[in-house]
């Protein structure tokens, strides 16, 4: 077992454990903290795949900005207490069964797919470096890039309009 395989398994177990704890934990603050762990594990996967730009952007945007926004909302509205008195446990069981059935369908469909020969190249290749991604982003994808800035502006205006007091 090489070092990349060991790292792959460690990061995968971290990601799945964190994802389960996001769903299971009672308090929203703990869910946010576990989700940050999932994001770190996924960033580790990106680094393993040599997509360094995306790893850093994932950390900065998700773990840095979005999760802080979640924590701000949770703490400003004092939602730290368990606000979920569970009335219907059958609803919970049905949800878990539905998710498990979806997993079963995916695994059953992909188990026999002829993918054994396809290798995702780890720790080689330089398409994930910021030089190449920047060249592609500002040559071929400059129009979507500019449109996404308009999207951000409209999202900002929308958030202010929705969130302001009457």
């Amino acid at each position: 077992m090489s070092i990349t395989q060991i790292l792959f398994w460690i990061l995968s177990i971290m990601a799945i454990l964190g994802a389960l704890m996001v769903v299971v934990s009672k308090s929203p603050v703990y869910s946010v903290l576990w989700l940050i762990m999932v994001f770190f594990a996924i960033s580790g996967h990106y680094i393993l795949l040599n997509a360094q730009f995306l790893a850093i952007v994932n950390l900065i945007v998700y773990a840095g900005a979005i999760m802080v926004l979640f924590l701000f909302v949770i703490m400003l509205m004092n939602l730290n207490a368990d606000t979920e008195p569970q009335k219907n446990k059958w609803l919970k069981i049905a949800g878990v069964i539905a998710g498990g059935a979806l997993l079963l369908v995916f695994v059953g469909a992909l188990k026999n797919a002829d993918l054994k020969s396809q290798i995702a190249e780890v720790n080689h290749g330089d398409i994930g470096l910021i030089h190449n991604l920047g060249l592609a982003l500002f040559n071929d994808y400059v129009i979507p890039f500019e449109i996404s800035s308009v999207l951000f502006l409209s999202a900002m205006v929308g958030a202010v309009v929705i969130g302001k007091k009457e």
Binding site: V23, L91, A98, L102, F106
Partner: peptide, 16 residues
């Protein structure tokens, strides 16, 4: 797929 299905189960079970 496992991460996605955990997310789906979370959306279906949690009400917060």
């Amino acid at each position: 797929v496992a991460l996605f299905c955990i997310g789906v189960a979370g959306v279906l079970t949690r009400r917060n």
